[in-house]
Design a protein around this nucleic acid. Structure first.
Length: 423
RNA sequence: GUGGGUGUAGCUCAGUCGGUAGAGCACUGGAUUGUGGCUCCAGGUGUCGUGGGUUCAAGCCCCAUCAUCCACCCCA
């Protein structure tokens, strides 16, 4: 009886890990360009942290957390998202005393107990970024521009940036009541789900996929028409910065957030290529969160991108594994030993080199060199050892010439530079 | 938590009316006493997811169960 993995928790196998590393390194490069530095926080936190930040009545907290009691009786949870732990760390270590503006990014696994489906898993990975301490709407725009920049750098072009504003604690309650009143007037036109949730999460009704609900809510009041002056000015300024930098976006006044702490600007990168999961990245401003967690009165804005979903979008153009510069094919014991020495020496000089360890025939070794995508193959046997030179085969052009073994590293470097163009 | 689909070779799948299991790809070797890709040849005893049941006989029918996928809910 073999042991299998846990439902919804996936292995990332060698043939897909290249794509993951590409996405991660691209994100790091772009985020660091914009002045963000990485912060690493534990995957386990006190349960209370998530209750207070994400919201007691959200689905995440109510039924999706991996919560357990440790041996000293504390209630702990595997993190279902990254912002709350980062804010906890920010407050705990008083990072605001070192710099009034903090730009942080994080990367790692999150856990939610949900039924797995396409693009949705119980252990999933997010890469996220947070800016703390800036109210200026230009920072909202910069975060969005960075997000767009990242997607472009990652070669993912089947996404659209959508933005919205959820207002603040001044204007949101009034709008919410107005929306509830509107929905009550259309209650019998709504689906069962929406009738159930219109009080708890009226905004969610606007995002319902059922056509009847769509029709019933076409005339629903828009949050954007009921922002207070401050929120409206902020949203206009964000749009103005996006327009000025020619950043493409769409306004989606029906965008919803699953976490309670969001205010003002919210946004998503959405795609139509992931089945039911259309959000690849999502985020927004959270001006009250840090204070509510016992920290200073500082505003924040950030987002998280789902790496599984990004990887799914990359499957159409997978990232190839690195190819060997050289495969040394050897015939006979003496040549095998020499091949090992040559390889070791070249590896120390940072060439990618492979040899055969299985005692295969020359044909078989060449097949393997081809399969690995080796750029060159050096073929050595007894004769080659005796004359201290050997044929070096260019696998791209299927030509070969005799080269000395003494200065192989120098020669290899020249040949690799000469013809480094992709196939 | 709810609903539906699918479990047969490493992978993708076929398998007729129930009659004791196949293809493509991949992999390995060979066609060249030391030369890859293309082509050709050869190489498969696989708990048919698992456990019951019906039957002379079950991959196929029935029941249960597990896994997985997709969708709902929710969300990255």
């Amino acid at each position: 009886m073999t042991i299998s993995g846990i439902k919804g928790m996936n292995d990332i196998l060698p043939n897909e890990v290249q794509t993951w590393q590409f996405l991660e390194s691209t994100a790091r490069r772009i985020f660091e360009t914009y002045g963000f530095t990485e912060i690493r926080v534990p995957v386990v936190e006190k349960t209370e942290l998530f209750c207070r930040s994400i919201g007691e009545t959200t689905d995440i907290v109510e039924k999706e957390m991996y919560t357990f009691t440790d041996k000293s009786g504390n209630s702990l949870s595997l993190r279902p998202e990254g912002t709350a732990p980062v804010m906890r760390s920010f407050i705990e270590h008083k990072l605001y005393t070192l710099d009034p503006v903090n730009k942080l990014y994080y990367l790692g696994p999150m856990f939610r107990y949900e039924r797995p489906q396409k693009g949705r898993y119980r252990q999933f990975h997010q890469i996220g970024a947070e800016v703390i301490g800036v109210d200026d709407p230009r920072i909202d725009a910069q975060v969005l521009i960075m997000l767009v920049h990242f997607f472009a750098a990652a070669g993912i072009d089947t996404v659209e940036l959508q933005i919205n504003s959820l207002g603040c604690k001044e204007c949101r309650p009034g709008y919410r009541q107005m929306l509830v009143t509107f929905l009550e007037s259309r209650l019998n036109a709504l689906c069962d789900d929406c009738r159930r949730r219109y009080l708890a999460n009226p905004l969610r009704v606007l995002d319902c996929k059922v056509p009847g609900c769509r029709e019933a809510t076409v005339a629903a009041p828009s949050v954007l028409d009921h922002l207070c002056a401050g929120c409206n000015d902020h949203f206009v300024a964000v749009r103005s910065s996006l327009d000025a930098t020619k950043t493409p976006y769409a306004i989606n006044p029906r965008m919803v957030r699953g976490l309670d702490y969001y205010t003002k600007t919210t946004f998503e990168m959405v795609t139509e290529n992931l089945g039911a999961q259309n959000a690849v990245a999502a985020g927004g401003r959270y001006d009250g969160l840090i204070k509510s967690l016992g920290g200073p009165s500082l505003s924040g804005i950030g987002f998280a991108a789902g790496l599984e979903r990004l990887a799914l979008l990359k499957t159409s153009s997978p990232v190839p594994p690195p190819r060997p510069d050289l495969f040394i094919a050897a015939l006979g014991d003496a040549a095998g030993k020499e091949a090992f020495l040559l390889m070791s020496s070249l590896l120390q000089r940072n060439f990618r080199v492979e040899i055969d360890f299985l005692g295969k025939s020359l044909k078989s070794q060449l097949r393997r060199a081809d399969k690995l995508g080796a750029r060159f193959v050096l073929i050595i046997g007894e004769d080659e050892l005796a004359r201290n030179s050997a044929p070096l085969r260019d696998m791209r052009t299927a030509t070969q010439d005799e080269v000395g073994l003494t200065d192989l590293a120098q020669l290899l470097m020249e040949r690799l530079q000469q013809n480094s163009a992709p196939i």
